[in-house]
């Protein structure tokens, strides 16, 4: 299982990676914005994407749109402070699979991952 975590906050990526590692997922790739994440996605076989929304260069919604042009199926979970109805609708309309509002707990991250790993298994 190869997981891509995208967030401009190094701290958030570290927390997510630590949580995923503790769940037994050792292959965690990190992207600090949408541009870097898209490059990683094109170069590697990624099974699940966790992405922030507000990032410089390319935000999470733009990343979602770009990934959906080349892969309709990979689970993409938005992990963001943007929890308003309009934002969720916008993300859903563009193909997001799930949504996790910050601040998140390790348990909530685990719950989302377990859900989508079992769906795709």
């Amino acid at each position: 299982m190869n997981i891509l975590v995208v967030d401009d906050s190094a701290m958030t990526r570290m927390v997510a990676k630590k949580t995923l590692n503790s769940l037994g997922f050792d292959n965690v790739q990190e992207g600090e914005d949408g541009v870097q994440a898209l490059e990683i996605f094109k170069e590697q076989s990624i099974d699940v994407v966790f992405t922030d929304w507000n990032m410089p260069n390319m935000n999470g919604l733009e990343l979602l749109i770009e990934i959906r042009k080349i892969n309709k199926d990979v689970p993409i979970i938005m992990v963001t402070t943007e929890g308003s109805r309009s934002k969720i609708v916008e993300a859903v309309q563009n193909g997001i699979n799930d949504y996790l509002v910050k601040p998140f707990t390790p348990d909530s991250l685990k719950e989302k991952l377990t859900k989508w790993v079992s769906v795709t298994a």
Binding site: S9, M11, T12, N54, T80, T81, E82, G83, S84, K102
Partner: peptide
Amino acid sequence: ALVCDAVGEFANVVGGSAKDKTN
């Protein structure tokens, strides 16, 4: 850089959460 990043992320989370609460 890590300390700055952490404090910035705190503000991001507090601001985002406050924004949502005001609806």
